[in-house]
Nucleic acid binder design. Structure first.
Lengths: 209, 209
DNA sequence: GATTGTTTAAAACGACCGTTTAAAACGAGA
DNA sequence: TCTCGTTTTAAACGGTCGTTTTAAACAATC
């Protein structure tokens, strides 16, 4: 087994388990067992559990953000005055293509769940790491949102977009629970795609009102 | 120190710490140290950590749900055909009065954060506990929502209301982080009330579209 | 094929976890 | 005041955690 294999297998297992259980509830022993590597491999290749957490985020956020950056540039070049739909379309398309990442397909729910963890379970080290590495792209995205709605104050833009993020992240974070509840309530199963198809108009209505 | 004191102090500390850090990241030693009681007191009075978690939820959900039940009855008696605003008003008012609970004032953000944990960190035992004890009130609330919008399918109602819950829970759960980010982005501080004042029209627009 | 640097392996470390035990302290009723 | 059930205390238990250590296995260079 090559080094790349070991590192990748650890990242894969860690990503799955973090998304499923959170950081504290996932032990290095679970990760290394699932990855079929030795326990010490995590500390050897990554240094510590904290560094592993950061590496998991880096692996999907770095390609995602550079893709988003490129797409924003394309958008800005094509259209002198991008409206809200344009900006959100760029985000949505980048997310969907970013999900089908370099190595196979990453589930959208895993992506969302990790994003949710970043907000709700981020200890100091992760928050600092994310800000340091991805704040630039984030600011740029927000800037285009502002440009699309110059009549709204920056504060209004900020909060509306974070309400929307909340609806997405919460929904996708607890998608299994919610699907169970929906099943119990309505008697019908809701596929993840059904949910997305309802979520998008919901968000559009809330953002554009 | 009386028994009631000990039990209450444990619940207070546990509630704060759970809301701040989550379940796994909060140890019984942290709780008992903050509560200034002996470590064994938790197992003596509650049985186990799981039982303590359930007790924390029971303490704020039980009064909340019985209040909500009463208010729903009042609403149903006063108005033969309650519309969406009526139903949501009942919920909002119950939440705000429920927050100022029997013992002092509980922060709204703590209430929301616990609600968020129930969705995103609930292990089997907590999920079962919540369903067993509070599912009845929940169903009744959903029923009124359906009656208010009979043209929408139960599935649509279910998902819209949970998207809305997501926006609330996420926002209030990470309110500190978000206020920091907003400050860094816009240069202006957003008070919690400002945020609420923007959240409500956002949700109304999304639900009623 | 010996040597060197890299990666894997097994075992152990100290720390902290939730829980249990057994004795001490307490408080109300006889 | 003595008693007896309740509550608090201090100490210990077994177990799991993240991390470290030491040696073995491996791969590339000469």
């Amino acid at each position: 087994m090559s080094q790349a294999d070991t590192v990748t297998r650890i990242l894969d297992s860690a990503e799955e388990l973090f998304a499923e259980k959170g950081f504290a509830e996932t032990s290095l022993r679970m990760i290394t067992t699932r990855a079929k590597v030795n326990l010490a491999a995590v500390n050897y290749h990554f240094g510590s559990k904290k560094d592993l957490i950061q590496a998991v985020f880096a692996r999907f956020l770095s390609p995602f953000c550079s893709k988003l950056d490129k797409e924003l540039t394309v958008m800005a070049a094509a259209n002198t005055e991008p409206d809200l739909r344009d900006v959100l379309d760029v985000l949505a398309r980048t997310m969907l293509t970013g999900v089908h990442s370099t190595v196979g397909t990453r589930k959208l729910s895993v992506f969302m769940r990790l994003l949710g963890l970043a907000y709700t379970q981020a200890q100091g080290h992760l928050r600092r790491f994310l800000k340091e590495n991805y704040h630039e792209t984030y600011s740029r995205f927000i800037l285009y949102l502002r440009a699309a709605h110059p009549e709204l104050s920056p504060r209004e833009i900020f909060w509306r977009i974070h309400f929307a993020i909340g609806a997405c992240v919460f929904t996708m974070s607890s998608i299994e629970v919610l699907r169970d509840m929906s099943m119990a309530d309505t008697g019908e199963d809701s596929g993840v795609e059904d949910v997305m198809n309802q979520l998008i108009p919901f968000l559009a209505a809330a953002l554009e009102r």
